[in-house]
């Protein structure tokens, strides 16, 4: 199964991201979106699955600013 995940930052202050992952995201997982690291605080299905794809939204909160750029 492939999980297409829309990552949305809870305050709306940071842009979110979209990517495919092979493991279903769980609350507490950390994820890098752009130059920053976030922690997942909620996961919900936003569309019905199609074939091998599931469509999820993960709400995230910032852990710490990173310095990629």
């Amino acid at each position: 199964m492939i999980y297409k995940v829309s990552y949305v930052e809870e305050t709306g202050q940071y842009p979110g991201g979209i990517k495919n992952v092979e493991k279903r995201p769980q609350i507490g997982d950390s994820v890098q979106i752009g130059p920053r690291q976030f922690q997942i605080v909620a996961v919900q299905e936003i569309l019905p699955p199609r074939d091998d794809f599931q469509f999820l939204q993960a709400t995230v909160q910032i852990i710490e600013p990173a310095g990629v750029r």
């Binding site: 492939i2 297409k4 842009p15 979110g16 991201g17 979209i18 990517k19 495919n20 992952v21 979106i33 752009g34």
Partner: peptide, 21 residues
């Protein structure tokens, strides 16, 4: 990074796309 520049404004990151996008 997908960055948008509004008319008369500075560019800002609007979205980050990763694997499979």
């Amino acid at each position: 990074e997908i960055a948008v520049t509004p008319p008369h404004g500075e560019p800002y990151p609007a979205l980050y796309l990763g694997e499979g996008q």
